[in-house]
Design a binder for these strands. Structure first.
Lengths: 239, 239
DNA sequence: CGATAGTTTGATATCCTTCAAAACCTGTGG
DNA sequence: CCACAGGTTTTGAAGGATATCAAACTATCG
């Protein structure tokens, strides 16, 4: 399968064969991690950059009172901050939602590629600006949408992001999230997430069971969530 | 008054006199803008970077249904994305909350400084990573805290950020926000913000009137909001 | 096949919203 | 210097979305 980062970056720029080779070189140390383990912990001072090659991860934070907020999902092709090592220490954790294959990239290696391949550097810049944009949209989601629209919006976003990296198969995709995960993402309780999901199923918007999400009608999902894809900055609009 | 960006960056690294001169050179085109006007609009393709020298601005988005979400406050020393021009178009607006003095920096100028002053480039990198971190914390705030804690937390954050750039005078600061602004920031209604502010006043946590916020006891504010300043990455802890 | 994680259900509580109106500012023009 | 206009803050009453608690049900996996 193609390098998912190359797939994503080619939404922004033409990635040459040389660039692809450089990306593959970055990914020459791929390790397998078990689900539920933390790749980076709050307080760490990371010396490497991680590139998720396969599987799902999340950024999250646990408050003193025990509540957890998930702040981002990382999917194949996502880098965990190209420049983390600038900060003195991590202010949040990155944990795995599924088994994952992760490329471990020493910072020197990352920096050398950024240095020698300006076109790639620019594309990676674009990618991290898009990550910021996604984060802002999550804030909008939490602040301005009710539970139903909020969950629908998240599912639509993940569907689009996954399709860019070839992880959508027809009208279904893997969704390795429990209802508790969804709750901690959306600022809701698991109980309420459960009821909303039932509603979404009843309305024929989604089919969700045993880790597989089927979207019978993407337009409908987009419509009910008032989804505006511009914030994903996929200029050749997906779909 | 000192360049507020230099003040902020020196929280991260020693900024040399040369670096300061470079920063001042970046800021040689300062323009005055009136409150409530938009500096950048959704859909724009900005060719300049803006540095807020004085006043308050906000990032915000207006949904199709008319609801507004404020996603960040910009205060003196804040850049509106050092690399916006990489994106094809803006996905949100930047509007002014007060009269403001803004340095307009052509992208070439910005890029040349990043190129020639690696230490400064690194410090600006740090700054934009901190901005991301703040955004993530806002998500935590929305998702996991109730209205009272949420507002207290925001006020604590702004107090710290403003003190870094010398905008806190003793135990008071300017807060050019209406209760509607606060509501659109926190995902609450203005009515509820009003009642929570009354509660905060009653509890002796804040004094807020006519655009001035007084915090009689910072420790108390930090305590009630369970404020953990690590996400601001001010290594020599302020206070 | 029992243990454990995840999902579903019901009943009740609460936080926050909605709507509507009054009171209060602040600036402006007469 | 007053009056008026528009934005902002405050108040009250009532409704709704989501939380909380507790228990049952259902998968999944060694």
């Amino acid at each position: 399968m193609e390098n998912p980062l190359a797939a994503k970056l080619s939404m922004f720029a033409d990635i040459s064969l040389d660039d692809k080779a450089a990306l593959n070189w970055l990914c020459d140390d791929v390790r397998v991690f078990q689900p539920k383990c933390d790749v980076i912990k709050e307080g760490d001072r990371p010396e490497n950059v991680f590139l998720l090659v396969d599987g799902w991860a999340m950024r999250y934070k646990v408050l003193p009172n025990g509540r957890r907020q998930i702040m981002a999902y990382l999917i194949p092709g996502d880098l965990c901050d190209i420049h983390v090592f600038i900060l003195k220490e991590m202010d949040h954790c990155i944990g795995l939602l599924s088994e994952a294959r992760i490329a471990v990239i020493p910072k020197e290696k990352m920096l050398s590629v950024l240095d020698e391949r300006p076109r790639l550097a620019r594309a990676l810049w674009w990618s991290s600006l898009v990550d910021d944009s996604v984060l802002r949209e999550w804030l909008v989601n939490m602040g301005q949408r009710n539970a139903y629209d909020r969950i629908a919006h998240l599912l639509a976003e993940m569907w689009l992001r996954l399709s860019v990296v070839g992880r959508v198969d027809g009208n279904s995709m893997q969704l390795p999230l429990t209802q508790v995960d969804l709750a901690d993402t959306m600022g809701l309780t698991a109980v309420h997430v459960n009821r909303v999901l039932q509603q979404l199923r009843q309305d024929g918007v989604i089919e969700l069971a045993s880790g597989t999400l089927r979207i019978p009608n993407i337009e409908k999902l987009m419509r009910v969530s008032a989804f505006e894809p511009n914030y994903l900055h996929l200029q050749p609009r997906v779909n």
